[in-house]
């Protein structure tokens, strides 16, 4: 039930609204947005540099990685199939031996620099994809 105090409280005067308050808020928001854009640009630049370092670490070792891979030509595959038909046991043993040699070759190529480079590149790629997806979704919403 409303009484005299409710009536007075509803009529209570308030200080005049500062006309430039909304403008000041907008100016502060603009500053915050500029700062966050600048931070994003710096972060992108750092990621590009880090990715270059990652590539620089991986590329010299990629050659060793590829040369240690088994021969995957069509001719070699046909030859292996005919050997498999002739003597399956021996062919399978040879195949397992080839795989083992390849894995041991890979293990020797996987030194700390290679793993570090791979990690850096993976992290950069993941960040790029996440950023692209979130920006795309926001843009879609604005344009819809």
């Amino acid at each position: 039930m409303s009484d005299w105090l409710d009536d007075l409280l509803e009529m209570m005067p308030v200080d005049p609204y500062p006309e430039d308050l909304a403008e000041r808020v907008q100016a502060r928001l603009a500053l915050v947005r500029r700062r966050s854009r600048r931070t994003r640009h710096v972060l992108h630049l750092v990621l590009v540099l880090v990715s270059i370092v990652g590539l620089w670490l991986i590329l010299p070792r990629a050659e060793m990685f590829l040369t240690s891979a088994p021969n995957l030509s069509l001719g070699a595959f046909e030859e292996w199939l005919s050997a498999l038909a002739r003597s399956p046991g021996e062919s399978l043993l040879n195949f397992i031996g080839t795989i083992a040699t390849w894995i041991s070759g890979l293990a020797s190529a996987l030194d700390i620099e290679f793993v570090l480079g791979l990690g850096i590149l993976t992290a950069s790629a993941l960040y790029g994809v996440i950023n692209l997806l979130s920006n795309g979704a926001a843009q879609e919403e604005v344009m819809a």
Binding site: A22, V25, L29, V142
Partner: peptide, 16 residues
């Protein structure tokens, strides 16, 4: 959705 102009309009409308 992150549109700064729309947000600024909301600031104008709701601040008083």
């Amino acid at each position: 959705a992150g549109d700064p102009e729309a947000f600024d309009r909301l600031v104008e409308n709701h601040t008083p």
